[in-house]
Design a binder for these strands. Structure first.
Length: 238
DNA sequence: AATAGTCTCAACCGCCATGCA
DNA sequence: TTGCATGGCGGTTGAGACTAT
């Protein structure tokens, strides 16, 4: 027996949302809220849409204070740093960028930022480990390879790791094995609260820490790479 | 101007966690 | 304790826009 569908797919409209549908959804939620039940919402709102689709549309597009368009340099840096630290946890990254959605950030990373970082000579990183979301970060990060950490290592530090296109030096390299506290105010201003938010006990954060020192960006915490720096100018994270 | 190739991003898919009966 | 319904998430897709030839 397969998994029950979340909605009657035959009676549900797919594809791009029309302005009328947008208006209906927005008006309904502004009047009544979501009612804590997205599955029932489309029927109540008179929409022939899947509840998940409504949720996504609201969160990614209709919700107030959504920011669209160009990412700022600061946002770029936050995304780079957090990706280096926690991997593709887009919702967590999005929580650090008010007005940005996880979908937005994910798209931005996949289409622009990643290319900026990797240049054209590097093979893409291996696939993530099977997803372990909703798990405490510290557990995830200490998990067996390929973990986000391993993924990150091979991504940024392994053979073919990306280099500064101008100087040719490794763009992100790492010091010898050592535990570091997640203490970079720049990297993840409230990473510890993120950990707590995921129910993790207070422990040292055994993972990469991205630090900025006088214009250089350094990532700490690998078990195979040495430290060095890159210039901000040549860093694609700028 | 036409066509092919590439890029962007909204939306969908399916998995997993959580809450509740 | 178990099973189901729902929420939330990350990965992927595909249509339309854009660019190159």
């Amino acid at each position: 027996m397969g998994r029950a569908p979340c909605c009657d797919k035959n009676n549900v409209k797919k594809g791009p949302w029309s302005p009328e549908e947008d208006a209906k959804l927005k008006e309904f939620i502004e009047k009544h809220g979501t009612g804590g039940n997205w599955i029932a919402l489309p029927q109540k709102a008179g929409l022939r849409r899947c509840g998940k689709s409504c949720r996504l549309r609201w969160l990614n597009y209709l919700r107030p204070n959504i920011k669209h368009g160009e990412f700022t340099e600061h946002e770029d840096r936050v995304i780079c740093n957090m990706y280096a630290s926690i991997g593709s946890r887009w919702s967590i990254i999005a929580s650090q960028l008010p007005g940005r959605t996880d979908n937005d950030i994910k798209n931005y990373w996949n289409t622009k930022l990643k290319k900026k970082l990797l240049g054209s000579t590097v093979t893409p990183p291996p696939h993530r480990a099977p997803r372990q979301h909703h798990r405490p970060l510290n557990v995830m990060l200490q998990h067996t390879s390929p973990s986000p950490q391993a993924t990150y290592n091979s991504f940024f530090c392994g053979p073919g790791a990306f280099h500064d296109p101008i100087s040719g030096i490794p763009a992100l390299t790492l010091p010898p094995p050592q535990d570091y506290m997640l203490n970079s105010g720049l990297a993840i201003p409230n990473a510890s609260s993120l950990l707590h938010g995921h129910g993790a006990p207070q422990q040292q954060f055994h993972h990469h820490v991205v630090k900025e020192e006088s214009g250089n960006m350094i990532v700490f915490g690998s078990d195979q790479c040495r430290s060095s720096t890159i210039t901000r100018r040549s860093s694609s994270c700028s």
